[in-house]
Design a protein around this nucleic acid. Structure first.
Length: 441
DNA sequence: TCTGGGGTCCTAGGACCC
DNA sequence: TCTGGGGTCCTAGGACCC
């Protein structure tokens, strides 16, 4: 039960990944601030290049703020296909080192070098492995990587963080607490703003401060799991193994609309579309699930969820959407909804035997049980008949047809079921799409 | 025009069972 | 007969991560 004797856990993190891929592929962006994120009115920053970070632009910052801080940056929506391709090359490279690779995201992974084939795990040996790896990745992908190595996952991740950008840090076995204790508690995984604030009230600021606190006191303050965990981490105790096969536990789809929506018919149509989409992903993954969760974020940003569990797993889109629409009825949308989401959890590999149950009844996008709605909720995008929802002076309606400078909108709201069809000039300034088609990555 | 989308893990309370 | 104690499942919300 003692910590690993050698710095055999490696953590790799690609530097400003999305932005770096853009700069690699577009030389005119090199040396310039690049910001990748949502381009709509409610977008946030996904990745800022180091040039943009100098202006204070950070991940998760509202795009509007990023624009005012760094108006001359290149603002890009992201090309996930390209990012995935680079990521695949990198992950392959890691697997050449050891079969035990645990990806955390497209740009990050742990490697257990101890499972590798006859590697030199002395400090200098690990350092050489890390430098060679960084070199290979730079050559093969044109992207720089930072690497950390240590006796545990936590320390390896902290090390790669310290190595950024484009560096390598190996924490020597035996020196762990010495390097850890002066650091702010926020470096510990699981310590976010809320936990840090609670600890600050005890006067606990550094990891060393945490190490002075009784375990029972941490448990009282933070709960059983976090308290214990923090107690151990502060002493550099972390035995978690690198795990290459982690089964996913839930699948979800959500969408923030360009403007808040109140129309109940529109909301249920959107929920139905999301249920279809999430079920499609479920089926593609070869899974089924028992619990359907509806998520809603209201006008004031309060977020709520409602869930229901079936007696057995399903992968049927109609069943999922029926449930999700039912759950929506519990949501008070009268002041506006800014986000909806549908998720499925309680996953199993069980696949529905459709001998008697399904057959011939699969909903196709754009079919007649209502327009396909992925499209709908974002301004300034191309309108797609049967897919977009349009906001007009008469309320919201589905784009039913278009072309030649005209757009036909069918109004079908709770107030006016099957509603009238009206045609507008496509450049009518009062028209704006309020729901959009998400990128088919 | 403040605040994305995809996840994981934890907690607390109630139902229910033994 | 005046109040046990686990354990599990479900739901809702929150913190956190990339």
């Amino acid at each position: 039960m003692t910590t690993r004797p050698r710095a055999s856990i490696l953590h790799l993190d690609l530097d400003a990944f999305f932005a770096a891929v853009e700069q690699r592929d577009k030389p005119s962006l090199r040396g310039r601030p690049v910001i990748v994120g949502g381009l709509g009115p409610r977008g946030v920053v996904s990745t800022a290049s180091y040039e943009a970070r100098r202006f204070g632009v950070r991940s998760a910052m509202p795009m509007s703020e990023a624009r005012s801080r760094c108006p001359n940056a290149a603002f890009l929506g992201g090309r996930f296909g390209a990012y995935r391709a680079v990521s695949a090359v990198v992950m392959d490279e890691l697997r050449r080192l050891s079969p035990l690779v645990e990806p955390l995201s497209l740009d990050e992974a742990f490697v257990d070098l101890g499972a590798g084939d006859d590697l030199d795990l002395s400090v200098s040996g690990v350092r050489a492995i890390g430098e060679r790896l960084r070199d290979t990745i730079r050559t093969k992908t044109g992207i720089t990587a930072s690497v950390g190595a240590a006796t545990s996952k936590t320390l390896a991740k902290i090390a790669s963080e310290q190595a950024k950008p484009d560096g390598l840090v190996v924490i020597e076995p035996g020196s762990e607490t010495e390097m850890l204790h002066p650091l702010p508690i926020r470096v510990l995984p699981g310590v976010g703003p809320a936990t840090a604030a609670r600890l600050a009230r005890l006067g606990v600021k550094s990891v060393g401060d945490v190490a002075q606190v009784e375990e029972s006191e941490l448990v009282d303050l933070l709960g059983e799991a976090s308290g214990r965990n923090l107690f151990l981490l502060a002493r550099a105790h972390d035995e978690r193994p690198v795990s290459s096969e982690r089964a996913s536990k839930s699948i979800s789809v959500e969408d923030t609309f360009d403007r808040d929506i109140t129309d109940p018919a529109l909301l249920s149509a959107l929920v139905t579309r999301m249920a279809d989409k999430v079920t499609e992903r479920l089926v593609r993954a070869g899974h089924s699930g028992r619990t359907v969760t509806l998520k809603a974020r209201l006008h004031d940003f309060t977020t709520l969820s409602r869930s229901a569990t079936l007696p057995g797993p399903t992968d049927d889109a109609r069943e999922v959407s029926r449930l999700a629409v039912q759950l929506l009825k519990d949501v008070d949308a009268s002041n506006g909804v800014r986000l909806l989401g549908v998720g499925i959890s309680g996953l199993s590999d069980w696949v529905q035997d459709d001998l008697f149950t399904s057959g011939g009844d699969v909903r196709e996008p754009g079919d007649d049980d209502g327009p396909d709605l992925d499209a709908a909720v974002h301004a300034d995008r191309r309108w797609v008949p049967g897919m977009d929802v349009m906001h007009t002076e008469h309320g919201a309606g589905w784009v039913w047809g278009g072309g030649l400078g005209r757009v036909t909108v069918r109004f079908e709201t709770s107030a006016t079921p099957p509603g009238p069809v009206r045609t507008f000039a496509a450049d009518d300034p009062q028209l704006s799409a309020i729901s959009h088609i998400s990128e088919a990555d």
